[in-house]
Design a protein around this nucleic acid. Sequence first.
RNA 1: GCGCCCUUCGUCUAUCGGUUAGGACGACAGCCUUUCACGUUGUAAAGACGGGUUCGAUUCCCGUAGGGCGCGCCA
Length: 465
Amino acid sequence: MKIVTRFAPSPTGFLHIGGARTALFNWLFARRHGGQFRLRIEDTDRQRSTQEAIDAILQGMQWLELGHDDEIVYQFARASRHAEVAQDLLARGRAYHCYATAEELEDMRTKQREAGLPVRYDGRWRDRPVSGPAPNTPPVVRLKAPQTGETIVRDHVQGDVRFSNEVLDDMVLLRSDGTPTYMLAVVVDDFDMGVTHVIRGDDHLTNAARQMQIIEAMDWPVPYYAHLPLLHGEDGAKLSKRHGALGIHEYENLGYLPEAMRNYLLRLGWSHGDDELITTEQAIAWFNLESIGQSPARVDFKKLDNINGNYMREANDARLTREVIRVLHGRGTVVPASAEDRLTAAMPGLKERAKTLVELADAVYYLVTERPLTLDDKAKTLITPEARAHLAAALPVLTNTNWTAPELEQALKTFAGERGVKLGNLAQPLRAALTGRSTSPGIFDVLAVLGREDSLARIQDQLTA
RNA sequence: GCGCCCUUCGUCUAUCGGUUAGGACGACAGCCUUUCACGUUGUAAAGACGGGUUCGAUUCCCGUAGGGCGCGCCA
């Protein structure tokens, strides 16, 4: 069987972390089986769907590198096909017109609530003879759902989930204005797109039962279902802006690498023994529905940071240089072209120390700023009169040393030994003078990357300051 | 209210009836060290509760509690 999965977001907001995970799982499953991963924009809610949201979703998926196959399906454009299916259902006697008004239904629900009864459509138009007087209001089309027996969703994550048909009411298929509802549209589109596996959030589990009723009324094949437990925020509460329901593009701005994000998202609900760092290639080889957990997970930025740090260290230096320059530009920082080579040269030492691109950008201050440097507070305290004396004395030694990290190290260690000063007491002031900060990559690497001229001048700056 | 789902360290998770309940993040402590990281060693840390089934339950069943989702002419 050719496997087809789909990601079907509604463009009423940005792509958040939960949606991104759903997209990832669908993508992985399709890739794993050499199938197709399709994208469908569920824009049938004309009031709330926006082009901005569509763009945000597309950009988010592009950033995550989750490429879809085939054309994007825009659900609204398929309204006439949906209506056609509704007519078909009507013709088969599996659906009927309902003339109840919104007010009437609201009234019905209120009464049901008050009486402590389950809130659902009571089927008041289900068996009315068509020959009766047609009311003035335009009707909706409702599914004539089975009233006895049960509908069983055979879910790959949740197992068999049984719903008594008594609790599922006759859902609206076509609104009074002739437009399709979500329930109908999903079923028709999934069928037309040849979707074999529906992988989506847990919040659709009950919908699955209702959708199955439509599918069965049409005699269509029921897809395999996999409903993913929802994601919660760090505090366990529902995902909200504070802790995770950020648009996925925010994670890009926060300085995360897409491959790290994928790894993190994958581990939220899916596992492969004790493996934590899982490359996308491995994920494609290993991904399966059986290993998806059944309980909801919380987002944890600490863990994300850690994973991102791991990927940063593995990342290519030239790439990180490009990325950090991009972040710097975003901040309005001017990066001289000459700094690019320095950045790349310093990258091995820099990336060891950063968990995100943002941290990386913070750390490259000394490479993209022209002297004289402005020292931060901690660095200032390192430049004591005694430190100045050490630096002054070291200057001629440095001047006469071959400018490579190993040779500089050798020279300065010897110098420190002869002077009877601990290397740290020399290295820290040196670090302050060269980088303007109290922390940086190894000081000999800093010297080497900065070069003789700039290094000596920066030290000189602190002697005369 | 009705229906459905979920419940192992603070967090993500492993375990597919028999383990000293494992790993990772985080925390704490040590080592390494020119700073910060990295790395490394170690410590603390979990089966919600109550019943069953079984020779034996974290694991299977039921109930309770807690959390979540759904119950629209929204998606």
